Amino acid sequence: MRILVNPVFGALLASALMAGTALAGNVTLRLGHVGAPVSPQQTIADLFAQKVQDYSAGSVKLQIFNSSTLGNERQLQDGVRSGTLDMTVAGTFSYFVPWAGALEAPMLYSSLDHFTNFFSSDKGKALMEAFEQDAGVKTLFVVPHGGFRYITMNDVEVKSPSDLKGVKIRNPNVPSFNIMAEAVGAIPTPIDFSELYVALQRGVVQGQHNPVGNIVGARLYEVQDSLSMVPWGISPHMVSMSTRAWEKLDKDQQDAVTRAASEVATEYPSIAVQDEEKLLDQIKDQITLIKPDDIDLDAFLAVFREKGLSALKSEYGDAAGKWLDAIDAAR
């Protein structure tokens, strides 16, 4: 039996399928991340998924896979770049966009407001456009991975850069962290996070830095004396989408995703602050908390500008240098 198709409708359908935007219908997108079921990544993903569903009137749904179910962070990023994964909440893609690794440098951001205001500014949007081109993905928004990384130590209370001189501190093996550790005279020592508790307990290193969620989750406060709220870097997380998945959506659905992204980028930092306050309250009787008012933040910023900034530009090149200057100027 032959099925006759109106030639005009047939032409419109073919055009829509080629464009990949019209007649999208209901779409389910897979979003993967490495965070646990209770983690900043999951909080971000849940908030985003709900808003996308609401603003698309249920025509776009996100299916969230946490705990590295779909691969480690590099594999997730590569999946979004190749189109085999629709979305991810992940770091700066520094495996594929080396200059973006500079964006998590210690002392680069003075506050969460500084972070959020920069990435919502025209300069921030220009940075994300440059990142999008180099990464080969659709960048939806950028958020902090929880709050700041804070420094914990044994036998030392970190209140000024001089307190870190000669101290062995566990560092992720990331150039931006190594540069700033060396700038304050510390000795950066790479240790896998899974081995960090025992390394601190045995004195292999004297201290470390991590967001409060990691400090509490891994119970590092049990083997450390003090937690100093030096703003030792924010790890930006890029919430990105494959270009293939983006083209599955019609215009209204794309608008819904864009609106949801904008709102999460604005709302999540305050959630991160509330979560951090709750976690700090949980451990306040088990570790000495050194608040910002007791820290010589001007001295740390001076080290960043006098030593760290030039070293970061040398390491990451001109592609990063102009953005480092723009972020610093936006304090």
Rank of each mutant, 00 (worst) to 15 (best):
F141E: 05
S194M: 03
P190D: 05
L140Q: 06
M107F: 13
S121L: 07
K125M: 12
A90S: 14
G213R: 11
G217K: 07
S120Y: 09
G136L: 08
V204F: 01
T92L: 14
H145D: 14
A135P: 11
S160I: 02
F96I: 10
K159Q: 04
V223P: 01
N178I: 15
M153V: 06
E129W: 00
V158P: 02
R219Q: 11
A218G: 01
V223T: 02
Q201Y: 05
L127N: 04
F141M: 14
G124T: 11
K168P: 03
R149Y: 09
S111V: 11
V97I: 11
S120D: 14
P190S: 11
D155L: 01
D122M: 08
N210M: 13
F96C: 02
G217S: 10
G213T: 14
E104G: 15
G185Y: 11
D225W: 02
L112E: 04
G166I: 01
N210Y: 15
N117R: 08
H209K: 03
Y221G: 00
M153P: 00
G147P: 02
F115S: 04
V142C: 06
D155Y: 10
P98E: 12
H209I: 00
A130M: 05
Y197T: 11
E129D: 14
G203E: 06
Q133N: 14
L164G: 07
V97H: 10
V223L: 00
P175I: 12
V216I: 08
T116L: 01
V184G: 07
F96P: 00
Y109A: 05
V216K: 02
K125Q: 15
G124Y: 08
D134C: 06
F118E: 06
A135Q: 09
M180V: 13
V204L: 03
K138D: 14
N171Y: 09
E129S: 15
T92H: 07
Y150D: 01
D192V: 12
G101W: 06
A181L: 15
P188Y: 05
P98V: 11
F193L: 13
K168S: 14
